[in-house]
Amino acid sequence: MNALANGVGDIVRFENVGMRYRLGAEVLHDVSFSLPAGSFHFLTGPSGAGKSSLMRLMYLAHRPSRGSISMFGRDVSTVPRTELAALRRRIGVVFQDFRLIDHLSALDNVALPLRVAGAKEGQIRNHVAELLKWVGLESQIDDKPTTLSGGEQQRVAIARAVIARPQILLADEPTGNVDDDIAIRLMYLLEELNKIGTTVVVATHNESLIERFKHPCFHVEDGLLSGPGVGVRNDRDPGGDQ
């Protein structure tokens, strides 16, 4: 189960991490792995196995109950709260349910990471419009999420996740609500981002995608980062390059 690598320049590094919600049972046990910069990984496992919990730890939504997590070479347990926000801005997240803000237009949703980072309004519109064009939503720039289809919402979510050029992109079941064609287009989009240096982790159930796009694969089951999935598909080192 241990995909830990000792490479310098790991974007993510988990060491013996355990996680529980409040006083509940532990949902992740002794998770240890690392992700080198520029890598692309799948994360698979049955529902409730702990994929989303692992993603939550990586996008700094939750503290581990034990073990240590380093992001960008910094132990997150020692990072002051004010600096955690800056660390989060280096992480792009595509949430499972997109989590777009309904009263904001597609443009304003995508602009959020730039606004919270203090970018000037004058620069935001052009930059966001360019990205929405890249994901094929140039004509829906002022539309509210509720008027967009599932696939369009998903592309807005991806645009929001990458607008601030994060060093790592975490996508939790990004293809869960779209048909196969859109899922494949989405994967090409993520691969393009990966080619320009973004580390990508995609949590998915979609076996056909995993078969089609040959990237290292982690498997989570019963809170353990292990199982037949890793053994079968992990013909390359999960912590190694692609």
């Binding site: 709260r81 926000a85 989060r88 919270v116």
Partner: peptide, 16 residues
């Protein structure tokens, strides 16, 4: 809370 959490997770400072 959902909107606030999204802002928090995309890197908004508490002051924002």
């Amino acid at each position: 809370s959902d909107v606030v959490e999204v802002l928090h997770l995309i890197g908004a400072q508490d002051s924002y």
